[in-house]
Design a protein around this nucleic acid. Structure first.
Length: 664
RNA sequence: GCCUCUGUAGCAUAGUGGUAUUGCGUUGCCUUGGUAAGGCAAAGGUCGAGGGUUCAAUUCCCUUCAGAGGCUCCA
């Protein structure tokens, strides 16, 4: 802190009527400032450098503009380009710069709306001109001009009337203003320089030069306000970083992500195929992919047996009545495959297993002693997903679900649900999935798609919240994402490249048991309605393996690798002897291949590397003589003179323990 | 489903109003090698499908199928 500033504060403090405020810094230390001090002034009082680097501030968890006066005691943090929240402020401003550049270059364009996202920003435009990537260079250079001009960004609160004038002829802004007017909110405007203004809640950086380096990434279309009834706008995506190197790193990451695309790796490693003649979203598991699928399935079977599940198999089609009972039909008819007429009855292909498992429950009289009853099945389901929604393995029309339904008493529900969360944690840990979170999706009470009594919803939500609080896993709440029959919890998992997927949907269901008239005899000899927990930790084979391909970049842990060992001969003369070694691995239940082609060792190695085979072994005369192999692992490390017997033992251990990394 | 874009051999690509380029892979021959590509040769394509314009269409237009990026949807 500079001396003059400090002395000013000191002298102010001495005066009786010092209207001071206390701010608490992230390290817990407190500082006192005059009421109405701005974040910028605080940053300056700490150091000139910090003032220059600061982009915005966090006041009691809310991100504020640097120049906004602070008039209360608060927790306070300065944001720079190093903080993720700071980056978001940059992206927000970059989004305005994009808009300004677009208006400069293409005067007829109408600006609609756009936010900062977790990786950058986008903005939706309405224009007769079709924009393409070829226009990006021009737009970017206009953006750079604006950044270079270092225009100040100033927030203004104006009356709705004044703002309406500003956006005359822009129906999107006018519509937005209607809403502001209705909610009796104030309209805030951010000016960039004198010429450009946008309706925006902020916050923004102080001037355009703080944005640094910008890059436009893609162009797509989007409905105005996300409603498919509305007109479609052109959406331009971009990103920005203060540090040029960081931008480059981010762009590299995007390139890397492309290389990891499960569709690309799936083809290269012969995992799956989707054939035009069969149909979109219908997956063929090739022999190698099928190994992965079966390994996962066996793992789930073993694990779930230990966790007290029983397994069933239920049919793939059913009379339509079943889905009337469950009330699925009115909601999902359009996303089910059309029914077939058999013996004068309509039969549907099942889109989910739930009603079938309810029938498993009601197939026999149940007592409280039978509960909890955990019914599991890797059920094959088909959903007629919208053609535009289908993508590789991630969204398909035929899928196999790691499904189960737990029937229990209300008293058991919380514990059972916590166990379900623990089961997720177990699976994810074993697979090295570190980043995941739960999302509690509640109903939107204003939407009439939701069935069941008010009481039921409150109780179901209450049980789920209790279970989540107790489990300690972090979660966020989303209003309006619930299933029609109850709130749900999604597990969002993030791959190492940052792509996020909903892997599993779970529910505590108080609706279906009533619909299916499920009951058990309680201690009191009376009938009671059980609670149903829906759960699917490994989701569907399709999506989960798609995720795993990207997560591991095709370099699966040994236990999941379709080919675990490839043995390469140095000379074809060694074929018979090498075959004996191969047989030893086979005897130990290890998936092994022999490469005895008349190719060079470097070539054989390269191909094995590209096939991402975890264990590569070369055999020459020396190795045959000593019953050893030369071991190469996927990371390129080579070890000569490894005893075959020892290696097999180690591999067996690694496979049995489902080790993520080869332990030798 | 909607918007925009794309579709050339198994894969990745070049190109054009006069039936097509290159690399990898495949097959054959030579080579029998020590940790990310040994050499030579050959085969492989009704340029997604159907229709139209044209003397002539893989190229231009329409339709359709499939894919991509988004949006909407996701029990």
């Amino acid at each position: 802190m500079s001396n003059t500033n400090q002395s000013k504060i000191n002298s102010a403090r001495k005066s009786k009527d010092f209207p001071g405020i206390k701010i608490t810094l992230p390290d817990g230390s407190k500082k006192e400032y005059k009421k109405g001090v701005s974040g910028y002034e605080i940053a300056k009082s700490i150091g000139e450098g910090l003032a220059r680097a600061s982009l915005a501030v966090v006041v009691d968890g809310e991100v504020w503009d640097l120049d906004r006066p602070i008039d209360k005691n608060c927790n306070f943090k300065i944001l720079t380009g190093k903080d993720h929240e700071g980056k978001k402020v940059i992206w927000h401003t970059a989004e305005h710069i994009l808009t300004q550049a677009m208006l400069n270059l293409y005067p007829g364009v109408l600006m609609a709306m756009g936010p900062a996202t977790d990786e950058g920003y986008y903005f939706d435009f309405d224009s007769n001109k079709r924009f393409s990537k070829e226009d990006f260079e021009k737009i970017e250079s206009e953006m750079k001009k604006i950044i270079k001009a270092d225009l100040p960004i100033v927030r203004k609160e104006l009356s709705v009337k004044e703002v309406r004038k500003l956006f005359k002829g822009n129906k999107y802004k006018q519509e937005w203003l209607d809403e502001i007017e209705q909610n009796k909110e104030k309209a805030t405007i951010y000016y960039t320089g004198e010429e450009f203004a946008d309706l925006c809640a902020g916050p923004h950086v102080r001037s355009t030069s703080q944005v640094g380096y910008v890059k436009l990434l893609s162009i797509a279309s989007a409905y105005w306000r996300g409603n498919s009834e509305n007109e479609q706008l052109q959406r331009i995506y971009g990103t920005a970083f203060q540090d040029k190197k960081e931008l480059k790193k981010h762009l590299n990451l995007l390139e890397e992500a492309k290389k990891r695309d499960h569709r690309k790796i799936g083809r290269e490693l012969d995992i799956f195929e989707i054939d035009e003649d069969i149909g979109p979203g219908l997956v063929i598991w090739l022999p190698k992919g099928n190994i992965i699928k079966e390994e996962l399935e066996n793992w789930a079977k073993e694990t779930e047996e230990k966790w007290g599940y029983v397994r069933v198999t239920t049919p793939m089609i059913t009379k339509e009545g079943l889905f009337h009972t469950s009330e699925h039909l009115p909601h999902y008819k359009d996303s089910m495959f059309a029914p077939m007429n058999i013996d004068g009855e309509k039969y549907y292909i099942k889109p989910m297993n739930c009603p079938f498992h309810h029938k498993v429950f009601s197939a026999r009289p149940r007592s409280y002693r039978d509960l909890p009853l955990r019914v599991a099945e890797y059920g094959t389901c088909h959903r007629y997903e919208q053609s535009g929604a289908i993508t590789g393995l991630m969204r398909v029309r035929g899928m196999q679900m790691n499904d189960a339904h737990i029937y229990c008493t209300k008293e058991q529900a919380v514990k059972e649900f916590i166990d379900v969360i623990r089961l997720h944690e177990y699976y994810y840990k074993k697979l090295g999935i570190k980043e995941y979170q739960m999302e509690l999706a509640l109903r939107d009470p204003s939407d009439d798609k939701y069935h069941g009594e008010e009481e039921m919803w409150v109780e179901a939500e209450d049980l789920m919240r209790k279970a989540m609080e107790k489990s300690g896993v972090k979660y966020k709440v989303e209003q309006g994402g619930a299933a029609f029959y109850g709130p749900k919890i999604d597990f969002q998992i993030k791959s190492v490249i940052g792509r996020e997927f909903t892997a599993s949907t779970n529910q505590i269901d108080l609706f279906m048991p009533g619909k299916f008239n499920l009951k058990y005899a309680g201690k009191d000899g009376k009938d009671h309605v059980p609670v149903v927990i829906h759960r699917a930790p490994l989701g569907t084979h399709e999506r989960f393996i798609g995720f795993l391909i990207e997560h591991f970049a095709g370099k699966f842990p040994i236990w999941l690798s379709p080919v675990q060992v490839r043995i390469m001969t140095i000379s074809q003369k060694l074929e018979k002897k090498a075959q004996k070694v191969v047989d030893e691995f086979k005897k130990a239940g290890i998936r092994v291949e022999l490469d005895n082609r008349a190719e060079s060792i470097p070539k054989k190695v390269r191909e094995a590397q590209l096939q991402k085979i975890p264990i590569m072994l070369t055999i020459g005369d020396k190795e045959i003589e000593n019953n050893t192999v030369a071991l190469r692992t996927l990371d390129g490390q080579v070890k000569f003179g490894v005893k075959v017997e020892k290696l097999i033992k180690k591999l067996r251990e690694n496979i049995d323990d489902k080790e993520l990394k080869f332990k030798f």
